[in-house]
Amino acid sequence: MLRTIFVFGGIAGLIVGVPLFLMTVGLKGHPPMPWGMAIGYTTMLIALSAVFVAIKRRRDVEGGGVIRFWPAFGMGLAISLVAGVIYVLSWEAALAVSGIDFAADYGREVIAQKRAAGASAAELARLTKDMAAFATQYADPLYRLPMTFAEIFPVGVLVSLISAALLRNPRFLPARG
């Protein structure tokens, strides 16, 4: 099972990590914010479909068509963990290669959006202070690494939960003869 976790976790990590790296380096960290998030989370869902495939394979090939919920869920979480680590490493590599200051760029974008929405001077001042504090925190790897991991892992938990719930039923997508 450990081999399966690393193989499918590695596949998922590469599916999500390579586009993240290429998009960050290629666009120098300046994709339009809504598009960047949509592309990012769509890629995460596609990548984490490896969880479903791995659980189904384990059920059909190694489990004789049966898998219990908790082992399936645990396997999904482990695959998500491996994919999440690769995602974090891809983000760190993209930051190092591109030289972008993500926190500062993000802060400027958020402030510009609030300004365009007609925020008051007091709101903008408070937001500017908050974004400066965020930039300081984000510079610390002990803050940045878990924060980056927290972008992908909840998606992995959700995919693992749904996959385990569906695939515990041997009649759901049964193995072909």
Rank of each mutant, 00 (worst) to 15 (best):
F52K: 02
G99A: 05
T42H: 00
G9M: 03
V51T: 15
M147H: 06
R68F: 00
L14S: 05
G26S: 07
A38R: 01
Q137R: 15
V159F: 07
M44N: 09
R126L: 10
L2M: 11
I162R: 00
A116D: 10
G64M: 00
P19I: 03
D101F: 05
T24Q: 13
R126F: 02
L95R: 13
G29D: 10
L20I: 04
L145R: 10
G29M: 12
I100T: 10
M147Q: 14
L48G: 05
A50V: 00
A72W: 01
M33S: 09
I15D: 12
G99E: 05
F134M: 12
T4A: 13
A93G: 12
M1E: 13
R58F: 09
V7E: 12
A121T: 11
V88M: 04
M33W: 06
G65S: 05
L20R: 12
M37I: 15
A132W: 06
R171F: 06
L2I: 15
L173P: 03
L167P: 03
G36H: 08
A135V: 02
P141L: 01
V85N: 11
T148F: 02
R108G: 09
I5C: 10
P34N: 10
A47Q: 07
R144F: 04
F153G: 11
R108D: 12
A132T: 07
L27Q: 10
S120Q: 01
V18A: 13
L48C: 01
R3G: 15
L20D: 01
Y138G: 01
A116E: 07
L173T: 07
P32E: 08
F6A: 08
R57T: 11
W35F: 15
L2E: 15
L173K: 08
L95M: 14
A150T: 11
V157K: 00
V25E: 13
D140C: 03
M44C: 13
A125K: 15
G36Q: 12
V88I: 10
A119L: 11
M44A: 15
G65D: 03
M33H: 03
D105A: 13
R126M: 03
V155M: 12
N169H: 07
F172V: 15
I15E: 04
G107Q: 07
F8I: 01
A175N: 01
F6P: 04
